[in-house]
């Protein structure tokens, strides 16, 4: 916008503002009463304090819930990301080392147990977390039931089964995430 145009624009808005003020000041409720009404003033102050207290309490509760949500969601994200890496490795390779499976299981079992304890302390229904825990243990047991040689599990004959179990586990993770969203 050019400089001249900007000046006219400001002048028009100034005049419009002045006109609005003039019109509104014609109403009596804008007139300032010099007398002090004690009961009304006290009621106003009381109402303002109660309002502030309610706003503060709600804000604190919201912040607390937000912190709990962020903490647990971060934990679940880490476990899910770990499972994703692990399952991708299982899918893309035709085999997996027993040691890699044991290492993943150790981390996953421990972390899910921790998330479960936190959710129990929030008094949430943790059925889906227990389900996820059981499914992960079943998945580990299933992989260990496949042919093993030199501590290497061969998954080549059971790709579609493995894939199906991974999809089911991802659905379990999604259920737990939904539960965390309810915090």
């Amino acid at each position: 916008m050019k400089k001249g145009n900007k000046l006219w624009f400001n002048v028009i808005w100034f005049l419009a503002g002045s006109f609005t003020c003039y019109i509104t000041l014609q109403y009596t409720f804008f007139e300032i009463d010099a007398k002090l009404n004690i009961p009304e003033t006290l009621i106003s102050i009381g109402t303002a304090i109660i309002g502030l207290y309610i706003a503060n309490t709600i804000q604190k509760r919201l912040t607390k819930n937000q912190n709990q949500y962020t903490y647990v969601e971060g934990k679940l994200d880490a476990i899910w990301a770990g499972f994703n890496n692990f399952s991708q490795g299982v899918l893309y390779n035709d085999s997996i080392e027993v040691n890699v499976l044991s290492k993943y299981s150790k981390e996953a079992i421990h972390s899910i147990g921790f998330v479960k304890s936190i959710l129990i302390s929030y008094e949430l229904n943790v059925t889906c977390v227990s389900e996820l825990e059981t499914e992960l243990e079943s998945f580990e047991a299933y992989l260990l039931s496949l042919p093993i040689s030199a501590n290497i599990i061969s998954t080549i004959q059971s790709k579609s089964d493995v894939e199906g179990k991974i999809v089911s586990l991802n659905q379990c993770f999604a259920k737990v995430l939904k539960l965390i969203h309810n915090i």
């Binding site: 027993v98 040691n99 044991s102 260990l144 093993i148 040689s149 030199a150 501590n151 290497i152 599990i153």
Partner: peptide, 13 residues
């Protein structure tokens, strides 16, 4: 440090 699976036939340890 790296325990194996169930049987001797599965591999060492």
């Amino acid at each position: 440090l790296t325990p194996g699976a169930r049987y001797y036939t599965d591999g060492p340890k």
